[in-house]
Write a protein that binds this DNA or RNA. Sequence first.
DNA 1: ATACCTTACGTAATACGTAATAATC
DNA 2: GATTATTACGTATTACGTAAGGTAT
Lengths: 123, 123
Amino acid sequence: MTWTQLAVFSKVVEMGSFTRAAEVLHMSQSAVSHAIAGLETEFGVPLLIRDRKHGIVVSDFGRRVLDPMRVILNRVAQIEQEAAAAQGLEAGTIRVGSFPSTFARLLPKIVSVFEKQLAPIRR
Amino acid sequence: MTWTQLAVFSKVVEMGSFTRAAEVLHMSQSAVSHAIAGLETEFGVPLLIRDRKHGIVVSDFGRRVLDPMRVILNRVAQIEQEAAAAQGLEAGTIRVGSFPSTFARLLPKIVSVFEKQLAPIRR
DNA sequence: ATACCTTACGTAATACGTAATAATC
DNA sequence: GATTATTACGTATTACGTAAGGTAT
């Protein structure tokens, strides 16, 4: 069970089609098929009933697990946001402006101190 | 980000030690170290502060993501339970009793018919 | 024929283990 | 020296793509 697989399954259900899910997710239809097949063999239960006439129908089991899967996807997104935010705190650019003459001697000292304070954060 | 990684991180926090988490999870300490390192490089933010004296301390970021991670793990467990339950419906053992003499000829036929009906379910 | 899913096969990524290394008590 | 985390390296798994194959309209 992979996030990609969960995302794929969720999107396939949403779109009602492997091909269109593949387009939206920017992957090959083969990858979509693999993803669903992978989940199904892992669970030993079909998730989707392939009906050529009416497109894709979600199996009983599929309906059961769809909700927890979407919860998972939401949480994953949340974690990634947290990560991005945390990174932002550390990886932001710092801009310093000054009068050329005044800070010519002061700046190096300030930068030096600042870098020392930064050292432990960098690790 | 893998479930294993999430489970490892969660357990490391719980145990306060890589080694003990490894024991509980039946994996090598190296695998535990890999798992945490993998998460940290993926996020670009440290999850744990390694303090040899006081064991493991969870970073600020780690504390933030711990909760959603545990939610994910719970949902995963839930999905697996659903799968097991759904499988149980299909994978149960069937026991057939009979008088030796009476069913000697009948049984093969019955089994044959039964297997034919089973065919579509097995796929 | 066309639209859609599946299968075969190759490849690149990676999760994990063993074993060696480093560091702290 | 004992305990614990990291690193190096090898391997087996696997996610994914390309391309070919079924199947139904």
